[in-house]
Every structure is written in C-alpha cells, then in structure tokens.
Computed example of a mutant assay.
Amino acid sequence: MKNNVTGKVISINISDKKGIIKQPIEVGVFEEDFGLKEDAHGGKWHRQVSLLAQESIDKMTNLGVEGLIPGKFAENITTEGMVLYTLPVGTLLKIGETIQEVTQIGKECHSGCAIKQAVGKCIMPKEGIFTKVIKGGKVKAGDTIEVIE
C-alpha cells in the first residue's frame, strides 16, 4: 500500500496524566527532545509524541463505537491523509513548525484501556505511531505533515 507523503493535522490533544483521554487544544508547543509541552507523555525517551490517523478512528466508529473524537485514544496528534503505521521507524516528518522522527509503530495496550473495554479492541496498538521531537515549534489543526526525504 503506497503512502501519501503529505497529510494534515486534525487536532492537537493534551493531558496532564497518563492513561486518560486527552483534550483538544488550539496550538501545541512541541519542545526539542521532550514532546508536547505540559503533556504527561513528554520527556527524554523515544515515545514523546503519539499520532493516530482519523482514518483509524473511523474504522472503530464503523465497528459501532460511538462518541469517538480526537484525543479519545490519548493521541497527541490526530492526522488525516497518511497511513501512519506504514512509515518506517526513522522516517522524518515535518509537522507544522516541528521536525519529528518516527521511533515506534504501535504499542502494547495496557489492560485498563477504556476503549478496549468498551469495544473489545483498541486501534492504537496496531495503527498508532510514536515520534521524538528533533526540532521544536508550534503545531495546530490544519498544519501539513510531510515526509522529509
């Protein structure tokens, strides 16, 4: 499956605790080698920022899950137009003013996942991706996402 080399930011989402639904914010300030400023997942590690495509969320909606909005899967950036989980680890993405490096595809779902309990499965473990911030800056809904070749 060929991936688009550009996508779009739908939403920036933040939470002050891990394991909870994130709330949309207008502009995210992403700090080099940290992640989204004031987000619970920020820090000096390889999963600073999480991204999930609206197309993945739509798959869950089509399975009958109601009320899915950006941030519900605790993703920092909700995207559109790119098949995120097909991007190889090491891919550089220009997202808004930032440059981020793909560090991990998917993750293990923790057992207390509210979505998994409601639906029987969660999309983040297979289709969510993680990045670290190489160059900081602001990102907002409507910004483009480009693969840097």
Rank of each mutant, 00 (worst) to 15 (best):
residue 137 G to K: 06
residue 136 G to D: 03
residue 26 E to W: 00
residue 125 P to N: 08
residue 75 E to K: 06
residue 49 V to R: 02
residue 39 D to V: 05
residue 73 F to D: 00
residue 18 K to N: 13
residue 82 M to E: 01
residue 46 H to P: 00
residue 116 K to L: 11
residue 74 A to S: 15
residue 104 Q to S: 11
residue 137 G to S: 08
residue 27 V to S: 03
residue 39 D to N: 12
residue 121 K to L: 15
residue 57 I to E: 00
residue 40 A to S: 14
residue 36 L to P: 05
residue 44 K to I: 12
residue 12 I to Q: 00
residue 95 I to K: 00
residue 19 G to F: 02
residue 17 K to M: 10
residue 139 V to I: 15
residue 19 G to S: 05
residue 63 L to I: 06
residue 46 H to V: 12
residue 91 T to W: 07
residue 30 F to D: 08
residue 70 P to D: 03
residue 77 I to C: 06
residue 94 K to H: 11
residue 131 T to V: 06
residue 23 Q to C: 11
residue 70 P to E: 01
residue 74 A to N: 06
residue 36 L to G: 07
residue 100 Q to C: 13
residue 8 K to G: 00
residue 130 F to G: 10
residue 54 Q to S: 15
residue 62 N to M: 13
residue 127 E to N: 15
residue 63 L to A: 15
residue 76 N to S: 09
residue 106 G to M: 02
residue 108 E to W: 09
residue 26 E to V: 08
residue 105 I to L: 10
residue 116 K to T: 09
residue 74 A to Q: 01
residue 14 I to S: 11
residue 97 E to R: 09
residue 9 V to R: 00
residue 120 G to F: 03
residue 132 K to Q: 11
residue 43 G to V: 07
residue 116 K to C: 10
residue 14 I to W: 02
residue 110 H to I: 05
residue 85 Y to F: 14
residue 43 G to R: 05
residue 33 D to V: 14
residue 86 T to C: 10
residue 130 F to P: 05
residue 112 G to M: 00
residue 33 D to S: 14
residue 70 P to K: 01
residue 85 Y to A: 12
residue 25 I to R: 05
residue 18 K to G: 04
residue 74 A to G: 09
residue 49 V to A: 05
